[in-house]
Simulated scan of single mutants.
Amino acid sequence: MPGGRLSHQDRLDIAAGLADGFGYAEIARQLQRPTSTISREIARNGGPGGYRADHAHYATTSRARRRRPEAGRRTIPQQAGDPRAAYVERFATMMVDGGLPRMASRVLALLYTSDSRTLTAADLVRELRVSPASISKAIGYLERVGMVHREADPQRRLQHYVIAEDVWLKAWEVSARTNFNWAETAAEGVELVGRDTPAGERLTQMAEFFQRLSEDMTGGAGFQDCLSVLAVLWQADRQLSAVELASTLDWPVERVSDAVDYAVKAAASGAGGE
């Protein structure tokens, strides 16, 4: 078994193992370390519910410096930045600018750019170098808005996280709901302070703006039908006829045709406005 002190990566792996529900013996086996080493490490740094890899590594390093202040320390040069990792962060920043929470954006960006179809909590902790609690909170948000779902591993006690096929439609819907909530909240404020007051006038303008924005994004029944058709086409592995779309959606063929016409007219309108 390898000796020496636990590295930062070892501690990240311990945190990932705890997040996946592994026992101390299983974590020790994966790291090829004695179980006693793992149990002491976790007990010394917050226990199984409070263990944080970065904090544990910093605390251990600080203790070593206090014990041996005279010993020189070798610095390990940082490796050159990974272009893919930089792209994931840039991708996440774009989504943050669009209104998604920061950690949820990082998780979504990593899932979307990964070669693997699924990632576990341990994978996300290791790749993003954050705590299991941060991953859990981000996954919870993405599940609530329908951008990610989980699949159980039939052979191991693991949860795999999978990005929704229609994730960008889900993102559009989240944005539309956010605008609607802004409008509703502003309207409640108008009722509270009165429309004829200075605050009421400002809140009225705000409510009308976000109401129009929400309506533009949702576009009424025609737009919603168009989104439903696009979602089916997105998930299909081949072109579908109007009859096949109608069968999948359990709609009349005429409704599918109307949704397609709506999309064509919207595209033509957008092209004409450029």
Results as ranks from 00 to 15, higher is better:
Asp97Ile: 10
Thr178Gln: 08
Glu173Asp: 12
Arg117Ile: 00
Thr204Cys: 01
Pro198Gln: 05
Leu158Thr: 00
Pro154Cys: 07
Asp153Pro: 09
Val193Lys: 04
Asn179Leu: 14
Ala183Asp: 09
Gly200Gln: 04
Arg102Thr: 11
Val162Gln: 01
Phe210Pro: 12
Ala104Asp: 10
Asp153Ser: 08
Gly146Gln: 02
Leu111Tyr: 02
Arg117Ala: 14
Ile139Gln: 02
Phe91Arg: 15
Arg177Glu: 02
Ala171Cys: 09
Met94Cys: 14
Phe209Ala: 15
Ala171Met: 09
Tyr112Trp: 13
Ser114Tyr: 01
Glu208Phe: 05
Phe209Thr: 13
Ala183Thr: 00
Ala164Phe: 04
Ser131Phe: 03
Val107Gln: 03
Pro101Met: 06
Asn181Gly: 14
Gln205Gly: 15
Leu169Asp: 07
Val130Lys: 04
Leu100His: 06
Gln159Ala: 14
Gln205Tyr: 12
Ile163Arg: 03
Ser134His: 06
Asp115His: 12
Val167Arg: 03
Tyr161Thr: 05
Arg156Phe: 01
Leu128Asn: 07
Ile135His: 02
Glu89His: 14
Asp166Lys: 02
Arg212Ile: 00
Thr93Arg: 12
Phe91Met: 14
Tyr161Gly: 06
Gln205His: 14
Arg150Asn: 10
Ala207Ile: 06
Thr178Tyr: 03
Val96His: 09
Thr185Pro: 13
Ser175Thr: 04
Lys137Ser: 13
Asp115Gly: 15
Ile139Lys: 06
Asp166Glu: 09
Ala187Gly: 09
Ser175Val: 03
Glu89Met: 14
Tyr161Ala: 01
Lys137Asp: 12
Glu173His: 05
Gly189Ser: 14
Ile139His: 02
Gly194Thr: 04
Val193Ala: 11
Glu89Asp: 15
Thr197His: 09
Ala186Trp: 04
Arg156Asp: 06
Gly146Glu: 01
Glu127Trp: 01
Ser134Asp: 12
Glu127Pro: 00
Thr178Cys: 10
Asp123Met: 05
Ala133Cys: 10
Thr93Lys: 10
Val193Gln: 08
Leu111Val: 03
Glu208Ala: 13
Val190Gly: 08
Glu151Asp: 08
Ile139Met: 06
Ser116Leu: 10
Arg126Val: 00
Pro198His: 07
Ala92Val: 04
Thr113Cys: 10
Ala199Gln: 14
Met103Glu: 10
Arg144Asp: 13
Gly99Met: 10
Arg212Leu: 11
Thr113Lys: 08
Thr197Met: 12
Lys137Cys: 09
Leu158Met: 01
Ser105Arg: 03
Thr204Phe: 02
Ala187Gln: 10
Ala138Tyr: 05
Leu108Ser: 08
Glu208Lys: 07
Tyr87Lys: 11
Gly140Asn: 04
Ala86Val: 11
Met95Val: 00
Glu173Ile: 01
Trp172Asp: 03
Gly146Val: 06
Val107Phe: 04
Ala109Ile: 00
Thr120Gln: 07
Glu165Asp: 11
Lys137Phe: 06
Asp97Ser: 15
Leu169Ala: 11
Tyr112Cys: 09
Thr204Ser: 08
Gln155Asp: 12
Leu192Phe: 08
Ile163Gln: 02
Ala138Pro: 13
Asn179Tyr: 06
Leu158Gln: 10
Met95Gly: 12
Val107Tyr: 05
Thr113Arg: 08
Phe180Arg: 14
Ala171Ser: 10
Ala121Gln: 09
Val167Gln: 02
Thr197Val: 00
Ser114Met: 09
Ser175Leu: 04
Glu188Ala: 15
Arg202Gly: 11
Leu111His: 05
